[in-house]
Amino acid sequence: MPERTGYAHGVPSWVDLGTTDVEDAKRFYGAVFGWEAEDMPTDQGTPYTMFTKNGKVVAGMGSMSPEQAAAGVPPVWSTYLNVDNADEAIAKVTEAGGTVVMPAMDVMDSGRMAFVADPTGAAFGLWEAGTHMGAQLVNEHGSFGWNELLTDDTEAAAKFYADAFGYRPEVSETPNGPYTAFWVEGNVEGNAAAGMMPKNPGMGPIPNYWGVYFTVDDVDQLVGDVQANGGNVIMPAMDIGVGKIAVVQDPQGAAFTAMTFANKQR
């Protein structure tokens, strides 16, 4: 079921890009994913870009503020969890040991959002849907297909997401070490909501974060398209059993994972 009309509480429903060059990002993602971009007015004065694929909304983009750039905040893809009530979700987050990065605010009639961080420091958004319920297309070429927490304390993170969002963690052993799937009541049958894996020393001094995966028909082709359009390859394509992945960066430095699933996702 690649087309979505809504999301259960706690399920990732939206991803957006904060970048230093909106126009070049439009060019890059248009070339590699076939996205079309439409700038929407906001009550903040700067437009917000909606990316569409086959007429369906798939992701968003906003320009980073001068203050963020001055502080050295890099361009980044962010994950948003759908919540029934943003204010109640914030209360749950703080009770579970998380912190509020940006308090809840109305986004015109689109919805209500906030930014929070889990106890390990990984930041993510909360989205209470109004007229904008999130991505209308997922698990198809050029749309997001997975969201994954990379953290140095999986035990603390698992407890936090269980307490704050009702996640049920299920750990399995893989050739690359333990992997946690988060299951959420009300999600599409047979689909975990998100995943989690521990950081390893070989990854270097990177912060704990929520990574965004985009589904593609052919990872090798995607890697070539990224390079041809000014992007970089962080991790070449590799087989992980359930599919094939590569980690890449857009020209401004925002990283994401491209994945071709071995089996069709719903």
Rank of each mutant, 00 (worst) to 15 (best):
T42R: 07
V101K: 09
T257S: 14
Q227E: 15
Q265Y: 02
W127K: 03
T5E: 11
D84P: 03
A59L: 03
T215S: 13
D217P: 02
D225H: 02
A262R: 14
Y7G: 05
M235S: 15
H9M: 04
T20K: 00
G202P: 08
S172I: 14
Y29H: 02
A228K: 10
G130I: 08
I234S: 13
Q68N: 07
D220L: 04
V101Q: 13
L81M: 12
K244M: 04
A37M: 13
A262D: 13
A86I: 01
P205G: 09
Q227T: 15
A156Q: 08
L149R: 06
G230A: 03
A86L: 10
A162H: 07
Y7C: 07
W210K: 02
D217I: 08
M108E: 15
W183V: 07
W146E: 13
D106L: 14
Q227W: 09
Y29F: 12
T215F: 02
M1A: 13
Q44D: 15
F214H: 00
V83K: 00
A117R: 07
D43I: 10
Q68W: 06
A25C: 12
K92V: 09
T46A: 14
G190W: 06
F160W: 00
G190C: 09
E23Q: 15
G6F: 07
A192S: 14
M203V: 09
A104S: 10
G190Q: 06
M1P: 07
Y29M: 07
F182C: 11
A258G: 14
L126T: 01
G231A: 08
E185Y: 02
A164H: 13
P236H: 12
A70R: 12
F115T: 05
P75I: 02
T174R: 01
Y179Q: 04
A156F: 01
P103A: 10
G224I: 11
A246E: 04
I245V: 12
V233G: 05
A129L: 12
M196F: 06
M259I: 15
G231T: 06
P175E: 09
V171Y: 03
P41S: 13
H9Q: 08
Y167K: 06
H9F: 00
A156E: 08
W127T: 01
P75N: 06
E173F: 04
A237E: 12
L81F: 14
S63V: 05
T151S: 11
N232Q: 15
V188T: 11
T52A: 14
P75W: 02
L149P: 09
F160Q: 00
P12S: 11
G98P: 01
Y167I: 02
G253R: 10
T260F: 04
P75Y: 04
P178Y: 00
M64S: 03
F28T: 05
D153L: 14
N147T: 06
T174V: 01
M40F: 15
V73S: 04
I245E: 02
V212P: 00
E189R: 01
G177M: 00
Q249M: 10
N208H: 03
W210Q: 05
V219A: 10
T131A: 13
T260N: 07
G142Y: 09
N200Y: 06
G224C: 12
E128F: 00
T79W: 01
S143C: 11
E155I: 11
K199Y: 11
V32P: 01
E67A: 14
H141N: 12
G111S: 05
H141A: 11
M108W: 08
N187H: 06
Q265W: 04
G97D: 11
F144Q: 00
D87N: 12
F256E: 00
P207F: 05
A37S: 15
